[in-house]
Design a protein around this nucleic acid. Structure first.
Lengths: 344, 344
DNA sequence: CTGAAAGCGCTTACAG
DNA sequence: CTGAAAGCGCTTACAG
């Protein structure tokens, strides 16, 4: 319970000034080899560890990276966080985390966190900045990198998936399997956070269908709140219709799981009676056998952190953007359209 | 890109000393009301935010809580983290996170993190301390609270579930449904991290069976690495046997999902042919309809954080322990044992 | 109620 | 290669 040793204690005991002790412990070349060895030994002996606050104040850096993440417990968020952690684990940076589940918290954090006095850099995960403090963020003293946030981030460094391309890919996959009536189950396009993934994936969906000369029927589009239950209900309604789609593209794996449940409830066999494709490639997919669009979650976290560290080292003149291309991971929930003799 | 305003800037502009400015901004009662108003106004105008490093150095506190968590991406961990975040969100503490997936990282973190120079308190989630630095942790200057770690934490503040009771509860639930042959699928008892949950839940399992006069058959116990696939394989072997259990208790929900998959592969209908109960009550349970043992993940995180903050405010003479009692959440994967006419 | 001064524990330009 | 000194930006005991 005694006070931790300070660098002064080390210096005194080694018979040097604290300047020399500091240099020795920070591997400055300006220290005599033997002197350094002696200082290091004493530091060891006293279990010296520098005060981070003092060090930071003196260096004028916080050595801290702040992560603001929406819905920490969603599997996508956790996986991205792991990528961030991996990139930072052996760096000099500590990782500060703030979870956002309400618009109020978001606004509070965007107001109080991006300050040089608080952090060396801000990493924002799946949370587009609100328009009203956009210009402040663009001129921010601290580097900010956005991961997975399209809206309002055009002039800021960011790591993005290509949701339109992903939606197109998913849809093309179903088209290639011979499906012509394809349903879409996704998040409502309007939402308080400005998430755009559902809308963009839908755009890709429409585009792929248009290329195939197919128009999207209104009854084949079901939008609602995020979640498996909601998706299940939406899909159940869509699939109860006698004239129903033979395949469904869900805007997330979570929702695809809901679609699978609805199919099961209705006695539809997947993939024989219905093909289902999701989006994200969360861990559960592998297990359920869900065909999906992989968007490289871990990698997006890692690259976001790397980009941020690069910005901290040297601000780039124009905001860098990394786009991760999605890819299809085929498993067991998609198959060629069943031949239906009495049709067409 | 100009330097952020310091308290000196505020003081000068308000025509007071920085001492008075500091007092005003920290709501000290020793400041004239009008003076204070003036200072606050100037601070606002200059967008003053105190340097955290300077503040911390001066106060002699880090205002930081460090969380070390194993396997951040497991749903249990993420849910606990959310509980911690909720408890800390409106406190003065920042949240530092370290993820551990190897024994090396664990040892590194236990060695370098519990220091007054680094943090005001340490919260360790699902990671028993290794014996070799146990005594150091017990005498640590910084308060440490363990969440979900039984081994080696007897003399340290902790929040625990009661795994033995939970195992008993799960097994009793199956016994009450008339099952007599009950299998156990869980993690190998030996593991590099010293996790004990599988062993303890098994102890509860055995105890409940013993009370019912049932001895556990060797062929009804299958242990292996954590994960759905592994559990599926273990369960497949157990269930392929002609003389197979009519119910299975899995030591985690993840593994229970594997058991369900195995049952499906073998054409066994759950819960008619086989009852399955898991452990944890992760989000997926609700969706799959998995009966399970709830262990209050979010709550464990919150209470751990609360306990830690209490310890930071005032160390308690004897280490506090909070035990969260598990409870059965019945859903759709357990049912009364099917009558089998030709038996006994 | 207010201010001058010291101190928190580091780092580093400057002088030698 | 080494040290005395100043400085990072706060807070607070002390004196008034």
């Amino acid at each position: 319970m005694t006070k931790p040793a300070t660098i002064r204690d080390v210096a005194r005991r080694a018979g040097v000034s604290s300047a020399t002790a500091s240099r020795a412990l920070n591997n400055s070349p300006l220290v005599n080899h033997d002197t350094k060895r002696r200082i290091v030994a004493v530091a060891e002996e006293l279990a010296f560890a520098p005060s981070l606050s003092a060090r930071r104040l003196s260096l004028g850096k916080t050595q801290t990276i702040t992560v603001v993440v929406s819905f920490l417990t969603r599997p996508q968020a956790a996986e991205r966080l792991r990528g961030i952690d991996a990139a930072l684990a052996d760096s000099e940076f500590d990782l500060n985390i703030y979870n956002v589940e309400t618009v109020e918290k978001r606004d509070q954090y965007f107001r109080t966190l991006p300050l040089r006095q608080r952090t060396d850099g801000l990493l924002v995960v799946s949370l587009p900045p609100p328009g009203h403090n956009l210009s402040r963020l663009e001129r921010s003293d601290v580097p900010i990198v956005f991961i997975d946030a399209l809206e309002n981030t055009a002039n800021l460094p960011r790591v993005l998936g290509d949701d339109v391309a992903g939606g197109e890919l998913a849809t093309q996959h179903l088209l290639d399997l011979g499906h012509r009536r394809i349903g879409y189950v996704g998040d409502a396009f309007d939402n308080p956070f400005g998430f755009t993934s559902s809308r963009d994936r839908f755009d890709g969906f429409e585009r792929a269908l248009a290329s195939a000369g197919i128009e999207v029927g209104e009854q084949d589009v079901a939008l609602g709140a995020h979640g498996r239950y909601e998706a299940r209900d939406l899909a159940a309604r869509m699939l109860s219709h006698p004239d129903r789609p033979t395949a469904i593209f869900a805007s997330s794996d979570t929702q695809a799981l809901g679609v699978l449940a609805a199919a099961q409830d209705l006695g539809l066999h997947v993939p024989v009676d219905l093909s289902v494709i999701g989006y994200d490639d969360i861990e559960a997919c592998d297990f359920v056998g869900l065909t999906t669009v992989r968007q490289h979650l871990f990698e997006s976290g890692r690259q976001g952190a790397d980009l941020l560290m690069a910005e901290i080292a040297e601000r780039s003149a124009t905001p860098q953007a990394v786009v991760l291309q999605p890819s299809i991971i085929q498993r067991r929930t998609t198959a060629p359209r069943k031949e239906v003799p009495h049709q067409d």
